[in-house]
Design a protein around this nucleic acid. Structure first.
Lengths: 213, 213
DNA sequence: TTGTAATAAACGAACATTCGTTTTATAAGG
DNA sequence: CCTTATAAAACGAATGTTCGTTTATTACAA
């Protein structure tokens, strides 16, 4: 997505003008990506509080000051990184998603996709875990992040009215859907358990038992 | 718990000695407590990465260097703080705990005590949430923290053999017991929900549905 | 008198960010 | 096609500040 330079209105003679765009060098689309990757890796390895802009720059292979071409400041960069990961997650969760078949299969599909994504994206997941609990996460980013998973919430809403799900706050249903899975991923990555397809099915079953009417 | 000074063996004459302890100024037992409190408050308000030793010292009303009388370094201080909170939590959870009546009532009791503690100890809880996801948390501290809740794990173990709980990894049972409750507390503190006794009962019911055979 | 608690002052290192400049992609004009 | 003007990208160096920790000294309890 190329941005155009500023619009120039050049007067040729008293009643004619020519409009054109000024020359403009484009941002390297891969550059913010490599800044993101460097940040994710450093933060999951050494922690948010131990990760500086200069370390990120060094790992990304750019000058520290270049980061400020792409982001306002550190906080802004982290919030944008957060949202970009949430977007990737939501795309994975709703890949081939179809809630017209049955509530249970839609629930199962989304949860399975979620667990799969999380277990195959260690750094992204651990960054989200760390940053979610940081006051640096803006309320607005958090809200935007949640809204990316709107289909889940509407599934719960509709399912409640049809007596499929427990008639409790939709947020409660959502919590029992994803938080145990997140806990599982965390334990898996800290190397205390190994991931088995068997576990997946058990988690999905337990979540379902928790939310079903 | 006062520490004694170094043991001195003083010779009175060729075959008699007197033992005594050298004079020693005592550490103020409240001082590490006020360091802890300052750290908790600052970290929940501004985040782990924005909280420095000097800020903690200022808030606690001591010199920064005094912190190093009580702790080896920042990491050590945070890990000890983590464990002291976990200990308080475990005391609360197992207050009046009796697993000889029934599995379900023991489960309910512990979970209710846990939710109560967490909702009435905002700063402690939010600190734990932040620090749990930080690489600064030592593997050993984490292990010690988990072991404080051993009665829960043995409840699950025994309950599984009697077909009360699902025959899945005990860690899975534990996750479905506490993680949704933690998520509830987080949402409560970020001001999106208000806490009702009704919610408590719903959460406990849903957790139970998830773990019961 | 003695040993430790407590501190103020000082340390080099690292921090986030800005500055002044250079490089480079772009498009108009020849 | 080449030249040239342009404006943003990119950068290295420097900014002032703050970091975690150490050192040297004083306060204090027994």
């Amino acid at each position: 997505m190329r941005k155009l330079g500023p619009l120039i209105k050049q007067t040729i003679d008293f009643n004619r003008t020519v409009d054109y765009y000024r020359a403009m060098r484009h941002k390297d689309e891969n550059k913010s990506e490599s800044i993101f990757n460097a940040a994710i890796q450093l933060i999951t390895e050494h922690g948010l509080s131990e990760t500086s802009m200069s370390k990120i720059a060094k790992k990304a292979g750019v000058s520290a000051s270049t980061i400020y071409v792409y982001f306002e400041n550190k906080e802004d960069m982290l919030n944008k990184l957060y949202l970009s990961i949430k977007k990737k997650m939501s795309l994975a969760v709703f890949y081939n998603y179809d809630d017209s078949i049955s509530y249970q299969s839609a629930f199962e599909h989304a949860l399975r996709q979620y667990i799969n994504f999380v277990l195959t994206h260690k750094d992204e997941f651990l960054f989200i875990e760390q940053f979610s609990n940081s006051p640096l996460l803006h309320k607005l980013s958090q809200k935007e992040g949640i809204e990316l998973f709107e289909p889940i919430f509407s599934l719960f809403e509709k399912g409640k009215s049809q007596n499929i799900f427990k008639k409790v706050d939709t947020n409660l249903l959502h919590m029992f859907m994803v938080y145990p899975a997140m806990a599982y991923a965390k334990e898996y990555f800290s190397g205390q358990t190994d991931s088995k397809q068997e576990n997946f099915n058990e988690i999905i079953q337990m979540s379902w038992d928790a939310v079903k009417a």
